[in-house]
């Protein structure tokens, strides 16, 4: 079965909530309108279409667009050797969606990472804790409003953080037509 046929099957099963598959660089993406249904869709994909391997699960911060979060599922079938990408959108007020750990157990750590880095909750996750940062760290670093340099925090006996100086090197580049002083902001030492 080709990836297109598999995508069509998902689409015909969930007519009301799925978009037409979008193709870009030979990869198919299906948008799912209702985030609450994601675990149902995933369960269907695994049980009926043999998508037995969850390659990756990650989230995107859409910055000032609404809805703010997009959660991306890359799934793969060892039977058909085909990839498929599922995307759901979650609003900032809501910031939660059902877990897929009951479909693929590998989702456990991926979802913990999304929770840690972006602050999106997964309902029904068996063990939703921070994974890369420590328990008690007050921010979600991959959000677009969080600066690369970081913010101060302090937890005695656990860890502390300080904002990082960005002087002395192009550690940040934002391309565009502006001159290099604007494109590569560096905290300069007072002269």
């Amino acid at each position: 079965m080709t990836a297109k046929q598999l995508a069509k099957k998902i689409q015909s099963q969930f007519k009301e909530i799925t978009s037409d598959p979008v193709e870009f660089r030979d990869e198919l993406t299906i948008d799912i309108a209702d985030a609450k249904q994601i675990s149902v869709v995933c369960h269907f994909a695994k049980e009926h279409l043999d998508f037995d391997y969850l390659v990756d699960l990650c989230s995107i911060d859409n910055d000032d667009e609404t809805p703010r979060w997009t959660v991306v599922y890359h799934i793969y079938s060892y039977k058909h050797f085909k990839h498929l990408r599922l995307k759901v959108h979650v609003s900032e007020e809501d910031s939660k969606l059902p877990t897929v750990t009951n479909v693929w157990r590998t989702a456990n750590w991926h979802e913990r990472e999304v929770f840690d880095m972006m602050g999106i909750d997964f309902i029904g996750h068996p063990d939703l804790r921070r994974i890369l940062m420590w328990e008690g760290y007050p921010y979600h670093p991959l959000r677009k409003d969080f600066p690369l340099a970081g913010k101060s925090s302090d937890m005695p006996d656990v860890a502390f953080t300080d904002p990082v100086p960005l002087e002395g090197g192009p550690f940040v580049t934002s391309p565009g037509n502006k001159d290099s002083a604007d494109r590569e902001p560096r905290v300069r030492n007072p002269e």
Partner: peptide, 26 residues
């Protein structure tokens, strides 16, 4: 603008990069 996922067979397993681009150099 667009999104791609590429996985390569690295010594440790599948190293994948998922890039979500809104266009431009970053």
């Amino acid at each position: 603008a667009g999104e791609v996922y590429f996985g390569a067979e690295n010594p440790k397993g599948e190293l994948g990069f998922y890039i979500f681009s809104k266009g431009g150099g970053v």
